[in-house]
Amino acid sequence: MAAGGDHGSPDSYRSPLASRYASPEMCFVFSDRYKFRTWRQLWLWLAEAEQTLGLPITDEQIQEMKSNLENIDFKMAAEEEKRLRHDVMAHVHTFGHCCPKAAGIIHLGATSCYVGDNTDLIILRNALDLLLPKLARVISRLADFAKERASLPTLGFTHFQPAQLTTVGKRCCLWIQDLCMDLQNLKRVRDDLRFRGVKGTTGTQASFLQLFEGDDHKVEQLDKMVTEKAGFKRAFIITGQTYTRKVDIEVLSVLASLGASVHKICTDIRLLANLKEMEEPFEKQQIGSSAMPYKRNPMRSERCCSLARHLMTLVMDPLQTASVQWFERTLDDSANRRICLAEAFLTADTILNTLQNISEGLVVYPKVIERRIRQELPFMATENIIMAMVKAGGSRQDCHEKIRVLSQQAASVVKQEGGDNDLIERIQVDAYFSPIHSQLDHLLDPSSFTGRASQQVQRFLEEEVYPLLKPYESVMKVKAELCL
């Protein structure tokens, strides 16, 4: 049975990233139509530049190519590739079939990587351009969430054990800070992308030097003109047959890092959902379990974690691919890159769409948070109580021993009897502590235990987050809708 299948058929496997999760716009960027249309555009740009620099290419040939950029006979191309065992030459023939007058000058002087690699770089750039505003929107939604809850005390956790208090907004800023680093890295790697350009079979530009009869300047002009037509500021000066596969490492490393950030955020949300302090959106008709109707599973956060793990592992592909590119190139890269580049971007696209949807509907339960604080705060307040007693004339050592005994009794009630923490009640009825009984409410005010959390939130948002989001103001209103 021949390899390949009808990918629109229910009898043929289709990647869930495309069929179930990723956005239509990201799927289109990695589609065959987008790819092969870009090949034709690159052939047109090459012909236009070659004509401008004096090669015998007519206006009629150029116009014929322009008129057929979208006229792609995919069936013919597939048949040609089956016959020739070469995808680029299959599309040269297919393009030439609908451009008979231009057929002889299509791909003039070029090698397969002229269309293959340059198209990949265009796709990487455009895919990054799709991700950047999506990530900015996630940051914006979380920034709104953090600002609104900047002063809401909550129990902090280290080692997932109760620690000092923080605020809900401050905790959210930990998430935002990681995503801001990801946004900066995505922008950097996007701006650092260079075009492969017009380089020939081993990167020496020998074929173009021959076409222009040894004119170095025209060869350099050709490279520059096509690079500018493709919208790049610069091209690699040095290439082998391909652009260095280190570029793929750079791009997928940034995406993998984004995956790590999203995994951490969504894990926190899942843990908070278990504590009943916070939940992701839950639709009115949504079913959490087929057997347990009360369940409210954090399905979206779980999906993000599941896909983020996949995204983090994909960076190993370009690392290994770059390491086995012998001399000017081997074909070890080809099949692998067809999979890992598309999957990385479709996965990143999915987790950003999902995280935006989550961040637009996060639900906080202040009463649950308050109750958990009441359970733990008495123990945390013991040092403040000791200091207040010393100020009232008591002995630190005597007070410490009193607190120690009462704390152990209260802990026994919590752990052995399943009761509430009654340390404060014990202190309130103990005559030894009568000098500070009137101060206990103040000493137990949760806001006095959150330090500068709310001020940190305000400063972080104003100095770091809002300036970073400013270039994306025009796209901030787009909502994230999930079908599944």
Rank of each mutant, 00 (worst) to 15 (best):
A49G: 09
A150W: 06
S474L: 15
F145H: 06
I106S: 04
Q63T: 12
I123L: 14
T58F: 11
G200A: 13
T52M: 10
F95V: 08
E220L: 10
G394H: 06
R404V: 08
R329E: 00
S23G: 10
A348I: 11
G361F: 08
I427E: 03
L311I: 12
T111R: 02
A344T: 06
V390K: 02
A49S: 13
T111I: 01
H437P: 01
Q61N: 10
E80D: 14
I106L: 07
L346E: 09
D73E: 09
L377C: 04
F379M: 13
S412N: 15
A256C: 07
D178P: 00
I269P: 02
I351E: 04
H7I: 13
D317V: 06
Y432E: 10
E463Q: 12
D11S: 08
S334E: 02
V368S: 05
L355G: 04
K477D: 08
I237L: 12
G104D: 10
E80A: 15
G200N: 04
L443H: 00
G451W: 04
H263V: 06
Q439L: 10
Q184C: 10
M278F: 10
P162A: 06
Q41C: 13
N185L: 07
A78V: 12
I139R: 02
A256Q: 04
Q61Y: 10
T94R: 10
A260Q: 09
L222I: 07
S323K: 03
D192W: 07
G418R: 04
A2K: 15
S23M: 07
Y13F: 10
P162L: 07
K199T: 06
C266Y: 03
P366F: 02
G54K: 10
P100Q: 11
D422W: 11
L179T: 09
W175S: 05
Y13M: 14
R85W: 09
L440P: 01
E462G: 11
M76N: 11
S140W: 15
V390R: 02
M312K: 05
M181Y: 11
R329N: 02
Y114F: 10
V368A: 06
M387Q: 14
N384S: 14
T154P: 01
E64C: 12
E220K: 08
H437W: 12
L53N: 07
L255G: 04
A49N: 03
A291M: 02
K233Y: 07
A453F: 05
R83K: 10
K264V: 04
Y294G: 03
R338Q: 03
K134H: 14
G451M: 01
L55V: 11
R85Q: 00
C173I: 03
V251Q: 08
H310N: 08
K479C: 13
E302I: 01
L121S: 09
A18Q: 11
I265R: 02
P100F: 07
F95R: 01
R33L: 12
Q51N: 07
L135G: 09
M26N: 01
K295G: 00
D398Q: 14
P100G: 07
E277H: 05
I339H: 13
E220Q: 12
A47Q: 04
T202P: 00
I176K: 02
Q164N: 09
K224Y: 14
Y21I: 00
G197Q: 01
H91D: 03
L135V: 14
E376G: 03
A103T: 13
F327M: 13
K224M: 10
R125N: 07
K477G: 12
A206L: 09
F145D: 15
F160T: 02
S306N: 01
G240I: 06
I249V: 11
T154L: 08
L255M: 13
S412W: 14
S407A: 10
A388E: 07
A90T: 15
Y114M: 05
E462F: 12
W43R: 00
N274A: 09
T58Y: 12
L44W: 06
F236Y: 12
L130C: 12
G8S: 15
S207N: 03
K170N: 03
R37D: 08
Y34D: 06
G240W: 00
M65F: 07
N353G: 13
L252E: 04
R245L: 02
Q428L: 14
K477H: 09
L461K: 04
R426I: 04
R33K: 13
Q356L: 11
M292E: 04
L258N: 08
R245E: 01
F160M: 07
D6A: 13
A102C: 11
C172Y: 13
F379P: 06
P318G: 09
L406E: 05
L69E: 08
S407W: 00
K391R: 14
Q51D: 04
N357L: 05
R14T: 15
A78N: 13
A322F: 11
I62F: 06
Q164A: 11
H263D: 00
F30Y: 09
P10Q: 15
T321L: 11
W43V: 00
S289R: 00
A411F: 04
G156E: 02
K75M: 12
R14I: 14
I386M: 01
D223G: 08
C340P: 00
Y34K: 07
T119C: 15
E283T: 14
G259P: 03
K295E: 05
K66Y: 12
K224R: 12
V315A: 07
L183I: 13
R452P: 04
P281E: 13
V390F: 03
H107T: 02
A411Q: 08
E401K: 14
L355V: 12
